[in-house]
């Protein structure tokens, strides 16, 4: 296993990243995308560093990156959930895939990184797999702009007086008849699933939010890889408090789950990855 730190040029700035490669030829690449609360490329409690080493021992390369304005990257810090840094991630992934001679990749995301992960999966043909870590809330993958039974988007509700905003928000979340609808995903989730990307939701929220997530997942259009096991799976993780990655047991579950999911969903060998690349080229 070897770490390769690098600076990736991006629109006049430089994105810091570390690529971890296995001793043998890699069979795929995994991209790690954390939230925007100041966590650097290693993530809180070094989750990404730890997962990268596990993946390398399974023959999978990975890249963890600092967003612009964070960690060792240059530039100004600026984040909005509605404008995730997909271009930054795409720039890093494209460069690393090219340098390693790989096509297939998976992406792991948490908080704004989860939204970025689906943005990346929706924008690329070779994203085989997404592991979306939702320790507390569904917000990162929820389409809050309305749709489904929504009567008023969040952005509209916030301008109403207090009580009206409260009921508008309830109407938006529960639907006109007050029933509990499934989660209405951001469009990138449907696009990725339809395209055949396998998706894991590693969920640590309440039972109620798990039911919403499950109902939303059932409503997703299944893609071409839907034979056998469902391409969308929900696994549980223990989480507590205001930071989703306590206690130590939670961290272990995250690392184990990411390693297991990527082992299952990425090419089984470097030869398999090469064959897939050749067949895609021939097509």
């Amino acid at each position: 296993m070897r770490d390769h730190p690098l600076f990736v040029p991006f629109r006049g700035d430089h994105l810091a990243a570390v690529v971890t490669t296995p001793d043998e030829t890699a069979r795929g690449l995994v991209v790690f995308l954390q939230g925007a609360g100041g966590a650097t490329r290693t993530h809180r409690y070094r989750l990404w560093t730890r997962a990268a080493r596990r993946l390398a021992s399974d023959g999978i390369a990975s890249v963890r990156m600092d967003y612009r304005g964070i960690g060792d990257s240059t530039g100004a810090y600026a984040f909005e959930m509605e404008a995730p840094p997909v271009e930054e991630a795409l720039t890093v992934v494209t460069l690393v895939l090219d340098r390693l001679g790989l096509d297939a990749f998976g992406v792991v995301g948490n908080c704004i990184g989860a939204r970025t992960a689906f943005g990346l999966a929706a924008r690329t043909e070779t994203c085989r797999s997404v592991a979306c870590i939702l320790p507390m809330a569904l917000g990162p993958v929820e389409d809050r702009g309305g749709g489904g039974n929504a009567t008023l988007g969040a952005s509209g509700a916030k301008w109403l007086p207090g009580p009206m905003a409260h009921w508008a928000s309830r109407a938006r979340r529960f639907g006109r008849l007050g029933g509990r609808p499934g989660l209405h995903f951001i469009p990138e989730v449907s696009i990725a699933v339809r395209r055949g990307t396998q998706v894991l939701f590693l969920h640590g929220g309440t039972e109620e939010s798990r039911q919403r997530l499950a109902a939303g997942a059932r409503a997703l259009p299944m893609g071409t890889s839907g034979e056998g096991a469902s391409p969308v799976q929900i696994w549980s993780m223990p989480a507590e408090g205001t930071s989703g990655f306590r206690p130590l047991e939670t961290q272990r579950v995250v690392v184990d789950s990411v390693a297991e999911w990527m082992d299952r969903t990425l090419p089984v060998s470097a030869a398999d990855a090469g064959a897939a690349r050749q067949s895609a080229g021939a097509a």
Partner: peptide, 18 residues
């Protein structure tokens, strides 16, 4: 990734090297 180990910032007048 060797050639990407460093960058220069002419505005600050610095180079950073991993």
């Amino acid at each position: 990734f060797g050639p990407l180990r460093s960058y220069e910032d002419s505005r600050l007048g610095i180079r950073e090297i991993f």
